[in-house]
Design a protein around this nucleic acid. Structure first.
Length: 286
DNA sequence: CAAAGAACCTGGCGGC
DNA sequence: TGCCGCCAGGTTCTTT
């Protein structure tokens, strides 16, 4: 579900409401969320701690704790974060209305009560999401495994070219490999490749420098536009207040098999690349 | 070491 | 209506 633009949307909404707040209580409903760390150990590290800052790296949300250590959340496919202000209605009233079935209380995995009266809830239907506590040394090592941030200044055409030039796998698989670039998932890989006119199955190492230049530009433009529209909602994604994103309305190829290409009119096809459903235009993408 | 494939979960959908 | 296989925004472990 959530890729870089969705996680960034959540971070921007959450940051002003959690930074500086103390985590009064942390209830882990599903022990798998913190595994292999025992829930009791996780709680002891988190409860009573003040959140110094909230940032994002790739698709991860990182709550830096005052005095050291960090709480890291990953939403994987169906994870959702909801912040309920003190005094407002419980999120369960929403699921009773049938507006957000994935916020059903049986999918509730973690709840954090803040000293502001706010309550942060983590729901996850498929239980693939994770909550991790990292000490300072682990925290540092953890992020070194991830590739560069595609929206950073340092992420240039030349940099991307170096990354792709030594990979023989399909360019789409390379874009989605978090060790190479952090934050791009299935949606934004498809859309960026379409906009750059590159076929998803081409070997990463065989993309010409000029094409990589274009790909780099399109990745940045696509991600920025998606953030502006608060991400993409296909099935379960919604922001911290339950609102859907708007970028899915602008998809050119993703999930549009059988429809005409907005560029050339040819029929958009669906294939499998690296085990993932992949949409592209056989006319525009060579 | 790189790449491919399976595994981890649950729910929804189409086909029979 | 019921069962079955397939599919889904992701990561990680195993196998080749």
């Amino acid at each position: 579900m959530p890729e870089l633009p969705e996680v960034e949307t959540i971070r921007r909404q959450l940051a002003p409401r959690v930074e500086g707040r103390v985590i009064r209580r942390c209830d882990v409903i599903d022990e798998r969320l913190t595994a292999p760390m025992p829930v009791a150990v996780f709680r002891s590290h988190v409860e009573g701690r003040r959140i110094a800052s909230l940032d994002r790296r790739g698709k991860y949300l990182r709550f830096e704790l005052e005095g050291g250590g960090a709480l890291v959340l990953h939403l994987r496919m169906t994870g959702r974060l909801t912040l309920i202000d003190g005094g407002s209605r419980d999120s369960r009233s929403r699921s009773r209305n049938g507006e957000a079935p994935d916020l059903d209380s049986r999918y509730l995995r973690l709840v954090m009560d803040l000293d502001s009266g706010g309550r942060l809830a983590f729901h996850d239907m498929r239980r693939l999401g994770t909550a991790t506590y990292l000490e300072d040394d682990e925290d540092k090592a953890y992020w070194e495994k991830l590739g560069p941030e595609p929206l950073s200044r340092g992420f240039s055409g030349a940099r991307l070219h170096r990354i792709l030039s030594e990979r023989k796998k399909p360019v789409k698989s390379a874009l989605m490999d978090q060790r190479l670039i952090a934050g791009i998932g299935n949606i934004y890989a498809d859309e960026s490749l379409f906009r750059a006119g590159i076929h998803p199955q081409r070997r990463a190492s065989e993309i010409q420098a000029s094409e990589v230049e274009s790909l780099c530009r399109e990745i940045k433009a696509t991600l920025r536009e998606a953030i502006r529209l608060q991400g993409s909602s296909i099935d379960t994604y919604a922001d911290t207040s339950g609102r859907s994103g708007g970028f899915q309305e602008t998809f050119k190829v993703h999930r549009r098999a059988g429809e005409p290409c907005p560029g050339c009119g040819r029929t958009i096809e669906k294939i499998k690349v690296g085990g993932r459903g992949t949409y592209f235009c056989p006319g525009c993408q060579q």
